[in-house]
Design a protein around this nucleic acid. Structure first.
Lengths: 140, 140
DNA sequence: GCTTGACTTAGAGTGCGCTCTAACTTCGAC
DNA sequence: GTCGAAGTTAGAGCGCACTCTAAGTCAAGC
């Protein structure tokens, strides 16, 4: 049992700001966090684990509304496990589509970079018979 | 030479809305498009190619400000090729980092899904000596 | 007891990337 | 020439995900 963390410590552990932690609590992304005597928040290990999962969902661009729904299901107990699994499966499919779109786009970037490198090489190379650049790109 | 396209046709080809096409032009993401007699926009093949490249940049989440900078460099001619290449290389590195973060997160999703499937299987299986679930997840 | 700094709240503000509106013009079919 | 659809503009509005502010409370060291 590690001691619970203050909001600022929790912020550092999760990579979120204290503002954002309060915001997430306000909108119901995380359940009410335990409080110290004076009303200050104290984050337990379970809170941090949930926040870590939320940040992973965020990495995959899950919209906050969906995360809220997921959090709500989670809070209502094990009966919602199938629904939660379904949500994650649907989301995972979207994420995989997203990843492959990004990979394709990354390939296009690489192609463009290679094209630019070719242009640069041609521009700096000494002019050469039948290799003289007539006209450089005006569409790349 | 294909005939130039109206804004609505260009929208369909690019997957952007006509509103967005006008917006992109307003903010300088695309240069002023040719106009028909009455002032209506006519998109040429080169415009569509540039728009296709922009949508690829968008897929990789390049912010519009950076796209604008890129567009500006492009419009000033071949002297900016090295700068453009540098921009794309920097961006590509970010994109690759992004992709791998998403892949890691996708793996975490898969793990969670598998965990849920195990829970579901345990819940539906007939109780079994020494396999009886004592308590189900309250942190997953 | 005083000070300093971290904490609390409700609510306002921000930046991004569109998205829509209002008022008006133009095009193409009839 | 009339009509309806599609185009034009400048500018307002929106949804998202924070991010910050103001005014006040609390905790810990001196």
């Amino acid at each position: 049992m590690e001691p619970p963390l203050s909001i600022e410590e929790a912020a550092q552990r999760t990579g979120l700001s204290a503002h954002t932690l309060r915001y997430y609590e306000r909108i119901g992304l995380i359940a009410a966090v335990a409080r110290a005597a004076g009303g200050q928040r104290r984050y337990a290990a379970a809170d941090l684990a949930w926040l870590a999962f939320l940040t992973r969902l965020r990495t995959t661009r899950m919209p906050i509304q969906k995360m809220r729904l997921f959090a709500q299901l989670r809070s209502t107990g094990d009966a919602t496990v199938p629904a939660r699994r379904a949500m994650l499966q649907t989301h995972l499919a979207e994420v995989q589509a997203d990843i492959s779109a990004m990979q394709q786009a990354a390939q296009a970037l690489q192609d463009k970079i290679a094209h630019y490198q070719a242009l640069e090489a041609a521009a700096s190379a000494p002019p050469h018979k039948n290799t003289t650049p007539k006209k450089e790109s005006n569409h790349g």
